[in-house]
Design a protein around this nucleic acid. Structure first.
Length: 459
RNA sequence: GCCCCCAUCGUUCAGUGGCCUAGGACACUGCCCUUUCACGGCAGGAACACGGGUUCGAAUCCCGUUGGGGGUACCA
C-alpha cells in the first residue's frame, strides 16, 4: 500500500466515543491532533464514534464539546457516526456481495465453547464462512480475514509494526441488531473524510490491521499515516482508569486547575520543545510540534508537576484576570472584600480550590489550632506578655494594615521577640497563610480583640 | 496462553556513536531572603534494567534475558 500523498493537506481527526466525560488521555490525543493540524495549517475533524447504541445521547456529546472548548481545542468539521449508519451498512453489503464478508449465526457462547474445545485459543473460528447463513434473528456479519500474509504499517512514533493475518479472527462488522461496528465505521470514515494522519492512543494499535484490511476492501490503495501515542499511566504504571483514578478533564476543572496549565502540562507528556522550555504560550509549541518527535514510553500523570504548572500560570495572571477566574472557587465571600485580598491569595496557591481554606478566618470562624501548633507557638516564653500588650494597644490604634503592623511589630521590638506567630495563631488558627495585616484590617476590632483575648485566657 | 509495544534520576523530558565525569524541570534535602506561609536565590543527593555482541569508541546500533504495559467483545 502507498502512503497518502504527502503533498495533500493534512486532515486529522479526534474520534472519541461519548462516555459522558473526556478522559485526560483522550484530551491529550485531541491536543496532539489539534497541534498537528494547526502546525501544518491542516484540518481538525471531530468525529463522535457513537456506533454503540446507548452511547449516542446528546448530553454525552456535550460533555466532550465542553471539555475540548475548555482546553482551547477547536475543530473545523464535526461528524456523528450514528448519522452515517446507512453508508457503513452499504459498505458491509458490498463486502457481502463480493464475498469479503459473510453472515454468521453462532451465538457468543457457541463460539466460545468451540474455542475452548480447540484448546483454549480464544477467537472466532470461521465456522460460518461457507454455511451461507441467511439474514435473521441473532445473525451478524463477519469480515473474512486473510489466512496468510502480513498487514503492516510504518508508525510515525513506533516505526514498522507488523501483524500476521493468521492472527486475525473473522470479526463482526454488523451486529445482530443491524447496527454497524466501530471497525467498519472507522475505516469507512477515515477513507471518506480523507484523513491523512491517524493520531491516537497506543491501546488502539491492534485494531489497525483490521481497519487496514477493511480499507483495502473499500477499494483504497493507500493508507493513512499512523502515530500511536504512548499511554498516560497512574503511579502503578497502568493505563489511567475511571475506577481508580481521576481521569476526567472535568475533575481537574473542579480541582481548580487553569485550562492553560492543564493543556501545557498534557503536551509535555511524551513531547518536549527544543530548548528544554516547558512553559510557553501554546503558539510557540504549535510552531515546532512534530508527531515524529513524540516519545514511545508511557508517561505517569504527575499531579505535583501539574500543580507546579498551575501555580506558574496563576501567578502570571493579571490581578483582574485572577479575580475573575478564581472567584467561583472563593466560596461565600463578599466580592469587594475578595477583590481587596485577591492579590495576596494569588501568590501562594497552586490550585484554585485552596482559596476557601486561606480565607476561612477572614470570612468565618477561625479553625481551632492543632495541639501541636499551640504548644509550639504559645508555649514559648513571653507569649502572655506579647498578647497582653498587643490586645491593649489594639483597643485604641488606627485600624489600617500599616497601623496594625506597627502595633504587633512594635510590641516585638519593645519585648525583643517575634510577635507575629502567636498573634497569627490566635487570630487565624493556623501557623501559615496570607500576610497578616491586610486581612486583619478587614475584620472588626471587637472580633480581633475577642479572638486574642480568648487565646490569652487559654495560656 | 497468544499477539503487539515499551525500558535514562522518585517523576517527566533532553540526549539519535565520540561534546556525557549524562543535562533541564517537578519532587526531595540544606542554606540564604523573610517577624507566617508562599515567591525568589544558592547548594546537594539522585538514572543510562541486566547480559552478550558490532565498533578504535555505545545511554545511543543488533541479539537475548528480565521487568512493565496494552490488546485479546455483537466496547471504542
Amino acid at each position: 500500500m502507498d502512503e497518502i500523498d504527502s503533498n495533500s493537506p493534512v486532515r486529522v481527526r479526534f474520534s472519541p466515543a461519548p462516555t459522558g466525560y473526556l478522559h485526560v488521555g483522550s484530551a491529550r490525543s485531541a491536543l496532539f491532533n489539534w497541534m498537528y493540524a494547526r502546525h501544518t495549517g491542516g484540518v481538525m475533524v471531530l468525529r463522535i464514534e457513537d456506533t454503540d447504541a446507548d452511547r449516542s445521547r446528546p448530553e454525552l456529546i456535550d460533555a466532550i464539546h465542553e471539555s475540548l472548548s475548555w482546553l482551547g481545542i477547536d475543530w473545523d468539521e464535526e461528524y456523528l457516526q450514528s448519522e452515517r449508519f446507512d453508508q457503513y451498512l452499504e459498505a458491509a453489503q458490498s463486502f457481502l456481495d463480493k464475498g469479503l464478508a459473510y453472515r454468521c449465526d453462532c451465538s457468543q457462547e457457541a463460539s466460545r465453547a468451540r474455542a475452548e474445545a480447540r484448546g483454549g485459543k480464544p477467537g472466532y473460528d470461521g465456522f460460518c464462512r461457507d454455511r451461507d447463513v441467511q439474514p435473521g434473528e441473532g445473525v451478524v456479519i463477519r469480515f473474512r480475514t486473510p489466512d496468510e500474509g502480513v498487514t503492516a504499517w510504518d508508525d510515525l512514533i513506533r516505526g514498522r509494526v507488523e501483524f500476521q493475518n493468521s492472527e486475525l479472527e473473522d470479526f463482526v462488522i454488523v451486529r445482530s441488531s443491524g447496527v454497524p461496528m466501530f471497525h467498519v465505521a472507522n475505516a469507512y470514515d477515515d477513507l471518506d473524510m480523507g484523513i491523512t494522519h491517524v493520531v491516537r492512543g497506543e491501546d488502539l494499535v491492534n485494531t489497525v490491521p483490521r481497519v487496514l484490511l477493511l480499507r483495502a476492501a473499500l477499494g483504497a490503495t493507500d493508507q493513512p499515516t499512523f502515530a500511536h501515542l504512548p499511554l498516560i499511566v497512574n503511579e502503578k504504571r497502568q493505563k489511567l482508569s475511571k475506577r481508580r483514578d481521576d481521569v476526567s478533564v472535568g475533575d481537574y476543572v473542579n480541582k481548580g486547575f487553569l485550562s492553560e496549565a492543564m493543556r501545557n502540562y498534557l503536551l509535555t507528556l511524551g513531547w518536549s520543545a527544543k530548548d528544554d522550555a516547558e512553559i510557553l504560550p501554546i503558539e510557540e509549541f504549535v510552531a515546532q510540534f512534530e508527531l515524529s518527535d513524540i516519545n514511545k514510553a508511557p508517561a505517569f500523570f504527575d499531579i505535583k508537576k501539574l500543580e507546579h504548572f498551575n501555580s506558574e500560570y496563576i501567578r502570571a495572571l493579571s490581578v483582574e484576570d485572577f479575580i475573575e477566574r478564581s472567584i467561583p472557587f472563593a466560596g461565600d465571600v463578599d466580592p469587594a472584600l475578595y477583590g481587596r485580598l485577591a492579590e495576596l491569595v494569588q501568590g501562594r496557591i497552586k490550585r484554585l480550590d485552596e482559596i476557601p481554606a486561606l480565607l476561612e478566618w477572614v470570612v468565618g470562624d477561625a479553625p481551632e489550632p492543632s495541639e501541636k501548633d499551640w504548644r509550639k507557638v504559645m508555649g514559648k516564653d513571653g507569649v502572655p506578655e506579647v498578647l497582653d500588650l498587643v490586645i491593649e494597644r489594639l483597643a485604641a490604634c488606627a485600624w489600617t494594615p500599616e497601623s496594625l503592623e506597627e502595633v504587633v511589630f512594635g510590641v516585638g521590638k519593645e519585648l525583643d521577640t517575634k510577635t507575629q506567630l502567636p498573634v497569627r495563631l490566635a487570630l487565624t488558627g493556623v501557623r501559615f497563610g496570607l500576610p497578616l495585616f491586610e486581612p486583619m484590617a478587614e475584620l472588626d476590632r471587637d472580633l480581633v480583640i475577642s479572638r486574642l483575648t480568648t487565646a490569652r485566657a487559654r495560656l
